[in-house]
Simulated assay, not measured.
Amino acid sequence: MPTHPHLFDVAIIGGGIIGSATAYYLMQQDPQLSVCVIEPDPGYELASALRSSGGCRVQFTGAENIAMSLYSIDFIKNFEHTMATATHPAPVDWVEGGYLFVVPPQDTANLERNARFQQSQGCTLDLLSPAELKDRFPAMYVDDLGAGVHTPHDGWCDPYGLLWGFRRKAIELGVQYIAERVVAADHDAVQAKSVTLGNGQIIRATSFVNATGAWSGDVAKLFNMSLPIVPVRRFEHYFTPGSHVGHLPYVKDTARLAFRSEGQGYSGGLVDGNVPRGYHFEVDHKNFEEVVWPAVAHRFPAFEAARCHRSWAGLYEVNELDGNPVIGAWNARLPNLYTVAGFSGHGMMHAPAAGRGIAELIIHGRFQSIDLSRLGYERVEQNAPYPEQGIL
């Protein structure tokens, strides 16, 4: 614990799943650190991760994203055994339900190329023809498909359990959580010095981490940093079919339809990347009927008589540059200001690897486990998008 309540080695702004994972890894790697996490929403009412579907997949094309997935999925699978505290278990209800990407004929060559690269990176997958898709998933309409890739060891978990597991473990290791909002930042030409909270308290630290997700662009502005990360509303629905479909993996297509089995029904939606940016949480109850239902019913005709039981809204933290996270320090200006944000829907699944990476960067000055340098802020300054083709 810090000797002075306002002075820390590391101050993490944002205590959601990314910020809490970062706090955990900092303490795991250096138990002598004094670390605080500043989180204005301690009940996580608006947290993006808790409004997500909890999916975890290896079907990316960037080596860094694949490596983060492989590590994070293995970590999540063992979470309840390694992250329990003295007073709380750490269940995350991992389901190895698999992922299935399906594409039309014109995208088959690209999917096959991606699959070969994923295999070269250690991923287990099955490349399936339309006939093989039909054989494996009889309820699926495949006449307009060219191919699919099934990754059987992917799956999903309970985001609530994952977030609280990281938070409780971080607290057990000595992290201090502060239920406040950062409203201002003080810095000179070469160093971030302190942040001011809504209650007037000033937090000084040697290093600062911006892990505020959909709010990270606004927090960056407090340090005069330009970060192209914006909030984008997305909808999730829980629905049931009119006739038997059976257990499905997490199904995704090029139109950004994404849904999976959930208990006796199914959970998912269709992401519209063109919606207005902003902190919008209102639910459009026509979204399922007008957007999601036609897409689901086309791919699985049994959903012609689907019934939507519940809908909710959450935020994607979209990196407008390339849809990938910024993970690194602002080396050209304030090198003690670190960013780990902009995951564009992949934050929960990559939280363990990203948190570990930022902790390594702060403690050791470089990435040690997975080299995430290509995801640094430098590419934003250079307007050089990270070339990821696996975001559907």
Rank of each mutant, 00 (worst) to 15 (best):
I202V: 15
A109F: 09
T212N: 12
E112L: 11
H150P: 08
V209N: 03
F239E: 00
H309A: 14
D322I: 13
T85K: 03
A354Y: 06
T212F: 06
P276S: 12
F223S: 00
E112S: 12
D107G: 11
E112F: 06
G328H: 00
P104I: 00
S344T: 15
V182R: 00
I362F: 05
V92E: 06
A84P: 12
Y25I: 14
A11S: 09
Y338T: 04
A332C: 07
G43V: 14
D143G: 13
I203A: 02
A189W: 05
S373W: 04
V271F: 08
G97Q: 01
Q382F: 03
A170Y: 08
T87Q: 10
P31H: 09
L7Q: 14
N274H: 12
V291S: 05
D188C: 05
V58G: 14
Y71W: 13
V275D: 07
S207Q: 13
M348S: 12
M1D: 14
F75A: 13
P5F: 06
G55K: 09
N114P: 08
K169G: 13
P105W: 02
E236V: 15
G278S: 11
Q389A: 15
H6R: 15
I171C: 09
L26E: 02
P325D: 12
V10L: 02
G97V: 01
F343W: 09
A359R: 01
P387Q: 02
H81K: 15
V95Y: 06
H237Q: 07
C56I: 12
P91Q: 10
R181Q: 15
L270R: 04
H346Q: 14
A313G: 13
G19P: 05
G19N: 04
L321W: 08
G345I: 13
L128Q: 02
H187R: 03
G14Q: 01
F166H: 09
H285E: 15
P40F: 01
I362K: 00
V175L: 07
I229A: 07
P104C: 04
G16N: 03
D186K: 09
A179V: 00
E172S: 11
T212E: 10
